[in-house]
């Protein structure tokens, strides 16, 4: 990246860092959610945008992190920050368990298997009532100030974006792309595709686990239905595709634009909100399959690391 890009980036970061002192708590809450979506869409990008293996159950890692955080806070008395970070461990463990067999599946079969994973995890959590509170979920003490969560979520979003940059500028990143482009050719050229897919999958599970943990603390209450909705996965996917899969800034752009869009439409047209969101999904898939940055990249020959 050029010095100018770094300069602008640092300015934006500095502005975001001091923002909570100057804006209403409504704006701070909105930004927390947006950070969360940046982290989620960016994580989905790491497996699906790079390798082409579409994960339809990515919210499972978010939910696993949320329950890990909530249980550590409520049962083990952990402070929220380490409890949230610990969500990465369980999410990564789940990714390892499920990724090893499922990443052998091709195309739609992987997508469906991931969808199934999400349902299984949710069902298990509902089943072990004594431990997880079953359908009624877990309540945590209300949080007194949201600023710490703001910074924690913000750092998660920045970390995912930096991680994506590091990956895409490395041979590892190129190799993930080669799996998306032609897995058989990649394999025949000496690339251990099974292992690289698993690495990407693990990395893609870490931050959803973390922001899931933070989210549990932020929301003060979690229950299975609200924590594992398919809509969350779909939103990650749409954000990433809209901004541009396989790019650094695509998920950021998509998450910010769609969060703003949702907020505006949600506030004004509560009833048509779902329909508009659905229409947007169709429009993105039909008109902008490569996403905003994908199109710009191709038209203006932008470097890969945008």
């Amino acid at each position: 990246m050029k010095p100018l890009t770094w300069g602008i980036g640092l300015l934006v970061l500095a502005a975001l860092a001091i923002m909570p002192f100057f804006v209403t708590s409504y704006i701070v809450s909105f930004t927390i959610q947006t950070f969360m979506w940046v982290a989620l869409a960016g994580s989905w990008n790491l497996i699906s945008g790079f390798t082409g293996y579409v994960s339809f159950g990515h919210v499972a890692f978010f939910g696993t992190g949320a329950y890990t955080g909530a249980l550590l806070i409520s049962k083990a008395g952990w402070p929220w920050l380490p409890a949230g970070l610990a969500g990465s461990v369980t999410a990564a463990a789940l990714a390892l368990l499920i990724g090893y067999p499922c990443l052998r599946l091709k195309g739609p079969y992987f997508a469906i298997a991931m969808l199934g994973l999400n349902e299984v995890v949710r069902a298990l959590i509902s089943y072990f009532e004594d431990f997880t509170g079953g359908g009624s979920g877990i309540s945590l003490p209300p949080i007194l100030s949201i600023e710490p969560v703001y910074y924690a979520m913000g750092l998660s979003a920045v970390s995912v974006t930096l991680l994506t940059y590091v990956i895409i500028t490395s041979q590892f990143g190129l190799r993930l792309l080669s799996i998306r482009e032609d897995e058989i050719a990649a394999e025949a050229m000496g690339i251990n595709t099974a292992r690289l897919k698993l690495y990407a999958f693990l990395l893609s599970a870490v931050f959803p686990g973390i922001v899931g943990g933070f989210y549990a603390w932020y929301a003060s209450h979690i229950e299975p239905l609200g924590t594992f909705p398919l809509l969350t996965t779909i939103t990650m996917i749409i954000m990433c595709l809209f901004g541009g899969k396989g790019t650094v800034w695509g998920p950021v752009l998509g998450a910010v634009l769609l969060s703003v869009f949702q907020e505006l439409v949600w506030a004004r047209f509560l009833f048509v909100h779902q329909a508009l969101f659905g229409a947007l999904i169709v429009a993105v898939v039909l008109l902008l399959p490569k996403g905003i940055l994908g199109v710009l990249q191709e038209r203006y020959r932008l470097p890969r690391a945008i």
Binding site: L174, R175, S178, E181, A186, A188, M189, I191, R304
Partner: peptide
């Protein structure tokens, strides 16, 4: 090493990246 009868390059990687990646 091998090539394929029906070409199997990585279309959305650049020519140079097609080599660097392997």
């Amino acid at each position: 090493g091998r090539t394929f009868q029906i070409i199997r390059i990585f279309p959305e990687l650049t020519a140079l990246e097609n080599l660097l990646v392997v």
